[in-house]
Every structure is written in structure tokens, then in C-alpha cells.
Nucleic acid binder design. Structure first.
Lengths: 206, 206
DNA sequence: GGCATCCTTGAAACTTGTTCCAGATTATCC
DNA sequence: GGATAATCTGGAACAAGTTTCAAGGATGCC
């Protein structure tokens, strides 16, 4: 119905609106850093961003939308950092594993923020589909950058990348909720990254 | 603090309490089948199970606890069914893939129930750790049964099984929220199942 | 049976996400 | 610069998860 500002295909967004959106995302990330998912309370976000509650909801129609957008924002920063310092391992699988572990460590430094973003991401339903897709695409892109292949990836490779992304999210969640150790997480990420080398899907089919 | 009835290490549970617990789980599954996560409202569960709200909370300290317990309950049924009709493929990886796709189809028949259980499972935080662990163990057991190896599994194999479980959950969620197609889900599950055959983790390490 | 303890009930209260609205502010177009 | 539409504000209201509590029931122990 409403053309919420804040995502593709929306009308241009004036400067003040752009600034508001920034303030909101900053407030969201700030509160998340302090106390995780639970601490990101919509009233607090609004107050902290110096915006009325109704306005907050016009920009981000739910808490999940807000946190997924926050995740997208943070991932973009990560993506840039990775561009500036790409992994140097010779094997593609190793580059992916190293990239993901580097991201993992970055999130370890702000576990509350990570928890808030990931809980929202995995909890999101259809209504946040567009935002979730944007995050998925960005994640895929980051992994494909690490693989470093030249042309368009094969369907097998895309499937492998999806599985890797799933695993990354799951291990992160598992670690954040204390269910698996960092060693286990690292092991699982390395395990799943071998799919990049292998990619022998078809023999199992049917 | 309180020894909530309903999970291991709790005092025996009288017959009427056992019956209450059953009624609650049945009410939860019933409401979930109708309308998914959102339709499982605690007041409705209580009324439908003919139990006071306070009692419901004594048995299951939150909606997430309740739905994860419901998931455990349903998985136990699946496990039994699989025991009665085990997969017959010659390759272990194929047996795992077939088992998971069979489970997938079972859940397809009750997408709302699946959505409710899985959203709760992935949304769960530390406080529901015990319940989540129970579900994870059961899932691992189901996959290991499908692999069908005799002795204790190697750490590599356990890691592969964890990754497979992660992928299964993620694809399920992705399918439920319309983000990936059934074909994609099947493809990803087959992709990840090749890890059972491969298991060449170590070369990527560091 | 009587007593102590724990469990269940019913109902109200509290919390936080979400919606709604009337009036003030800002942006756009002439 | 003024008319018009879109946006923003402050605040009330609603919804559903969760907590709390007093009073009534069940259980187990003597």
C-alpha cells in the first residue's frame, strides 16, 4: 500500500528522510549491541533516533523488517572490508572458509548485535520476503567473491553456495545460543566448504 | 527454580499431569495446524486444553518452549514411522537424502504446523536450550539411523550430520516462507548429503 | 481424618509490538 | 508566496505474551 521509504523502487527519499533512515538504523544497531534482540524495543528505537513511533513504522513496518535491514546494512560494511582485504589462499574452498571465519570473528566481537540480526533473519516470514532476499543475495555475493570464479556460476555451485550460507547462519545461531562451541562452528564451516571443491551432486539424485 | 513438569529430570508426573501435558501438546499442534505460529496463542492453547493459563506456563514456560516441545513430540512419531519403514537405498548418502525428503513431504502436508515448529525452533534462545538440544539430538539420531553405520560415528561424520541437519532446517524454513522452491530444497538436500560420502574435511583447515 | 505441601484455577495487571488518528510540519507545484 | 498533498508528531488504544496472586483442590504423610 504505502511506499515505505527504505527499499528499492521507492520514491527517491529526500535528504532529511535519508538522514532519518540512517538515524533509525544506527539506533537499532546501537540498542542491539547493548542487549541483543530483546533490547531493540520499538519505542526505544524511535526515541533514540528522535523520530515518532508512527514514523518508525512507516520506514520499517515491523521489528523484524528493521533488524533485517540492519543486518543488510552491516553486511554491506563487511563486504567493503573484504573487498579491501581479500583472502589470499590458493584453494577456492579455503578462501570461502577463511572469509566466513573472518566474518564470524567480526560478529564475535559484537555478539549481541549478531544475535539480534540473526534471530530476526531466521524468524522472518513472507511479509519480510523482500528484505530477507536482499540479505540472501548479499551473502551469496560475498561467498561467490571468495570463490573468485570468473563466469556465471553453475547451478551446482549455486546450490553449494546456498548450503554454505545456510550452514553459516545455523552455526552462528548455534554458537550465539551457546549450543555449539567456536571450534565446532569452525569445523562445520570447513566441512561444508569442501562442497565447493567437490560438487558431485548428481550421483545421489532420486 | 520450579521443576516444571514436562522434561527430563523432573519428578515423575502423576497420571492427571501426564494427561494435561498431552492435552496441551495436542492443543498446540491442533492450533498450529490451523494457522501456524501466529495461531498458537497461549490463551487459546490453555482454553483448548482445558487448563488455566498459569498452569500452561508452569508446564511450558514460554510459547517457544511449548512449540519446541511440540516439535520434539512430532519428531518422535516420525522416528517411529521411519523405524517401521526404513529406506532401502544401497548408498548411505542416498538413504539420508531419501529419509529427509520423506520427512519433508510429511511436513508439506501440514505446512502450518511445520512453520510453527520451525520458526519456534530457530527463534529459540538460551532459555530454551534444553528443549532445543533434545530436538537436535533426536534429529541427529534420525540422520544417523539413515546412514546406518554400525559403531560410534567419527567426529568428521558428526560434523557432516550437523551440517546436514542445519541445511534441512534452513531449506524447510526457506520453502515455508516461499523463498525457495521444493526443487531447490531437494537439490540442496542432495547436495549436502554428498558430505556423507566425501568427508574430506581436513585439507581445508587453517 | 487432619495437616502440610504442592498444584490448579480464574482473573487482573503488566510489557512490548502494532495500529490509529488529529493536528502540526514539510515538500511540491503553480 | 500560496494551495495542496504527503509526511511527521504525540499520544491513545489494541493485541498477545507473560507475570502475579489469592483462593480452592489434590496428594502424601502421620
Amino acid at each position: 500500500m504505502t511506499a515505505h521509504p527504505g527499499f528499492p523502487s521507492a520514491p527517491p527519499l529526500t535528504e532529511r528522510q535519508e538522514a532519518r533512515r540512517r538515524r533509525i538504523l544506527a539506533a537499532s544497531a546501537g540498542l542491539a549491541r547493548r542487549g541483543g534482540f530483546g533490547a531493540v524495543q520499538m519505542r526505544e528505537v524511535a526515541e533514540s533516533a528522535d523520530v515518532a513511533l508512527g514514523t518508525l513504522y512507516r520506514y520499517f513496518p515491523s521489528k523484524v523488517h528493521l533488524l533485517v535491514a540492519t543486518m543488510h546494512d552491516q553486511l554491506e560494511r563487511l563486504h567493503e572490508t573484504l573487498h579491501r582485504h581479500p583472502p589470499k589462499e590458493p584453494e577456492p574452498a579455503a578462501r570461502v572458509a577463511v572469509t566466513l571465519m573472518r566474518a564470524f570473528r567480526a560478529l564475535q566481537r559484537e555478539p549481541n548485535l549478531a544475535e539480534a540480526m540473526l534471530r530476526a533473519f531466521t524468524f522472518a516470514d513472507r511479509s519480510a520476503g523482500a528484505e530477507v532476499d536482499a540479505v540472501s543475495r548479499l551473502t551469496t555475493e560475498i561467498i561467490l567473491d571468495a570463490v573468485g570464479a570468473r563466469g556465471a556460476p553453475t547451478p551446482e555451485r549455486l546450490s553449494a553456495v546456498r548450503v554454505i550460507a545456510h550452514t553459516w547462519h545455523s552455526t552462528l545461531i548455534g554458537w550465539l545460543s551457546g549450543r555449539i562451541s567456536i571450534e565446532q562452528a569452525q569445523e562445520d564451516i570447513e566441512t561444508v566448504c569442501t562442497l565447493i571443491t567437490a560438487e558431485t551432486t548428481s550421483e545421489v539424485r532420486q
